[in-house]
Amino acid sequence: MSGVRTLPPLAAYALALGDDALILAQRLGEWVAHAPQIEEDLALANIALDLLGQARTLLSYAGEIEQAGRDEDDLAYLRDDRDFRNVQLVEIPNGDFAVTIARQLVFSAYQYELYTALLGSGDATLAGLAGKAVKEVAYHRDHAVQWVLRLGDGTDLSHARMQAGLDQVWPYTEELFDPASQLPGIAADPATLRPAWEQCVTSVLSEATLDKPEPRWRSRGGRDGLHTEHLGHLLSEMQHLHRTHPGATW
């Protein structure tokens, strides 16, 4: 099974974006039947479905470009953690609702800028996906913003938890803007996404009476296949059944 390093750059790029969406969809799927209100079960499931749809498109596309006969399921279920290219942000455990919402805020805001930039991509598949996805993630971002405001400026308890949630996810945000593979005119340069992201997130935090965290460390390595200890467990659960029946159709 070919590793990350042998993938054509465009396939590697699509895979990275696809892995982000796939792993986060997996995490959100864990919330089903546990959300704070039944209406939230619906909202989170909705977001998970959107992300899963993005993942499937991106993974399939990566497989097509690679031309090694791997389809979306081969890529999702048969790679080991060292071959996953998602940022570490999406693989950390859900924590409480505040941690999940904090992650949703920073990640959806990032995806919004990402897909907006990809609308102008020279690659038709990426541009086409972006056209659909940008509307989806605009909604995801809005959902996160509504909750950050309510938790940040709700009760003392919710404020404390929301701040703690932000403190926990913030160290993982730098990775979102690290330089990516050079695909001028096709990929979005992550550094260019930062200013708009920063502006959006900062203004929400301010309105929500929350402090922007100043972490003493930052995550590294996700795009190169170096992950947290959490990804292994997540993949065990996700992949186990598929791997137990090699070659089976589902």
């Binding site: 209100q37 209406e39 619906l42 909202a43 909705n46 509504q146 309510r150």
Partner: peptide, 20 residues
């Protein structure tokens, strides 16, 4: 009908529940 704390959330919840 549905339950929501305010109008903004009610609109969003309505979209999720009734226009899926």
């Amino acid at each position: 009908s549905l339950h929501a704390p305010d109008a903004a959330m009610a609109l969003r919840n309505a979209r999720d529940v009734y226009t899926r």
